[in-house]
Design a protein around this nucleic acid. Structure first.
Lengths: 187, 187
DNA sequence: TGTAGCATGTAAGCCGTTACATGATTGA
DNA sequence: TCAATCATGTAACGGCTTACATGCTACA
């Protein structure tokens, strides 16, 4: 016999589990708050879902019983707040301990355009590289701010490892930009 | 008045343009060959499209007049071969010279699971990191083979820059794996 | 009182995948 | 001749985005 509560819907996507996982950092959130948290965490290693996608993902997670939904009526609009349910936590733990993990997926338009440099001529990649460099510097500053806020507290142990991973990655990208610029005969 | 030939369909997606770009490396290809080429080039900086997606993308590109299609009937099955058309080349050039290039998108399940290490406990990330290390080593060997085949010929100038970018990235990932393992108290 | 930003959603539709079906070719 | 691999697609569907619609709140 089945002692689990009946739930409906499919297995969550990886993004679904990722969002579920964020509830381990903060017990209760609205969709908006979850999106904000995703933009300070997930974003650095997993494409941040659009606002509207966060809402629809939460709807599905609620339908599957993995998060508990509290509806608050305020005037003409209802607000919802969510927290991880017991079965949500065990689903998350199960997902984390299960199976193979795929190789990271990358969609790197900068490198794509560099790769096609023979078609566009070298001026275009140089400009793109320049723009990418600025974006990277902004990202690095953003991530450094977050990383500094974590400190060395054991509570943020994993987050700190991940933040340092991200910093190392962005620094490597900066190096690759410099190397490519040099080889393109750039400044 | 419009001097361009009439074509139908939407603007290609980035993946569409990426595939179009591969015809600058090899004049004429079947869908199968295009997929093989993508797996030796694109794959390292842009998620490689599934075989079936390559076929449907080619169909769309042909419909839009960006590639020319030659149909060959052999027995009960027709084969198709493709080459870049004149308007395909100018569409590619236009796309390459146009506009803003977004920040690279990453879907890194390894880091995601590391990030959630507090939920799973440290043993699981350690195992995942170990597996990732092996995958990275295989990738590096694969890319090194390709890179060595390029040599220093000016013809492969851009490809060589991109291959070296990839190698640098994978080496950095290996460093991050080692750092994370250390901090997890691992071997 | 009006406007900018906070907040919550729905609808349409593309992008891309997996599963499936099937044919052709090569070598054991 | 059987199996493996090369090769070509179709169908169904999920994931995720953009565009749009709307309400709420603070403050100038």
């Amino acid at each position: 016999m089945n002692t689990m509560p009946a739930v409906s819907g499919q297995d969550p996507s990886v993004t679904g589990y990722a969002l579920l996982g964020l509830f381990s950092l903060r017990e209760e959130m609205s969709g908006y708050e979850l999106k904000q948290l995703a933009d300070r965490t997930l974003k650095f290693f997993w494409t941040a879902p659009a606002m509207s996608h966060v809402y629809s993902e939460l709807k599905q997670l609620a339908k599957a019983g993995l998060v508990e939904e509290t509806v608050i009526q305020t005037g003409a609009r209802r607000r919802r707040r969510y927290r991880l349910s017991a079965s949500g936590r065990s689903a998350l733990e199960g997902w984390l301990s299960f199976g193979e993990v795929g190789f990271p997926g990358l969609k790197h338009e900068v490198v794509l355009r560099l790769f096609l440099g023979a078609v566009s001529g070298p001026a275009r990649p140089r400009g793109i590289l320049e723009g990418y460099k600025h974006q990277l510097e902004r990202r690095i500053a953003e991530l450094r701010g977050i990383r500094d806020g974590l400190g060395e507290a054991p509570h943020y142990r994993y987050a700190a490892i991940v933040a340092d991973w991200g910093m190392r990655y962005y620094r490597e990208e900066l190096e690759s930009v410099a190397d490519a610029n040099e080889r393109l005969g750039g400044p």
